[in-house]
């Protein structure tokens, strides 16, 4: 397993470096902006500047980090199929389950890192401010970010299990939430769903279910397809 983990870390190294930049980048940019801009003093009287920095940065960081997460899902299986190295790997002793488990561990660690770091930043911002920071009140909630992010991830993961081109899998992951949105809008328009129809609730529920279905189908496909 150690060798497989090393291989996957090396394979995903460029994406993980990008993820690290997108994780830390917003903190650096927002800190620089807050301390150099003339705008911040207008609101700084009411909130602690570090509280504002942490709360704003964490939201941007969390949203941006879903892009490398999506890239990891897209590259997970398609990348090794594209350069045929999966055929080499399949002639070696590890089972497909172990090969996939190694990928899931690497991606899972990245996912845990981005959420832990950013949630910790939000928690610290709230503590410093002795309550929620109003400056981020208009931003999407963590729940919505997670749901859409996971749906993109699941769709990309499934496409990667089928495709030999990571770019296709990435595009599918990006388009999937929009396709679901278009489906709901068309359903509302053509079938005139009765009010009160909570569009947001249905979209969120569907995203959660579909992300899990896609993830499981991707695993099944990888484990059962004989030809690499």
């Amino acid at each position: 397993m150690r060798a497989l983990l090393w291989k996957d870390l090396r394979l995903f190294s460029y994406i993980l470096v990008l993820g690290a930049i997108l994780l830390v980048g917003p903190y650096v940019v927002v800190t620089f902006y807050v301390f150099s801009s003339d705008l911040f003093p207008l609101v700084s009287a009411e909130i602690n500047p570090w509280s504002a920095i942490l709360s704003i940065s964490s939201f941007f960081s969390l949203i941006l980090c879903h892009f490398p997460l999506l890239m990891l899902a897209a590259h997970s299986m398609a990348n090794e199929r594209a350069d045929r190295s999966l055929a080499f790997l399949f002639t070696l002793p590890p089972t497909r389950f172990r090969i996939l488990a190694s990928k899931v561990v690497v991606i899972g660690c990245f996912l845990a890192t981005i959420w832990c770091v950013n949630c910790l930043a939000i928690l610290i911002a709230t503590r410093i401010n002795h309550g929620p920071v109003f400056i981020t009140a208009g931003y999407p909630s963590l729940k919505v970010i997670a749901e859409i992010g996971f749906f993109c991830f699941g769709a990309s993961w499934l496409a990667s299990a089928y495709s030999a081109n990571p770019a296709h899998a990435l595009a599918f992951g990006l388009v999937a939430p929009l396709m679901l949105l278009a489906f709901f809008l068309m359903t509302m328009y053509w079938f005139r769903w009765p009010t009160p129809f909570s569009f947001g609730v249905w979209y969120e529920r569907s995203s959660i279910i579909l992300s899990q279905v896609c993830f499981v189908l991707g695993i099944i496909r990888f484990l059962n397809k004989v030809e690499p």
């Binding site: 045929r84 190295s85 080499f88």
Partner: peptide, 9 residues
């Protein structure tokens, strides 16, 4: 194999 597919990187 005839055409080895070892990780090129």
């Amino acid at each position: 194999p005839e055409l080895p597919n070892i990780y090129p990187w």
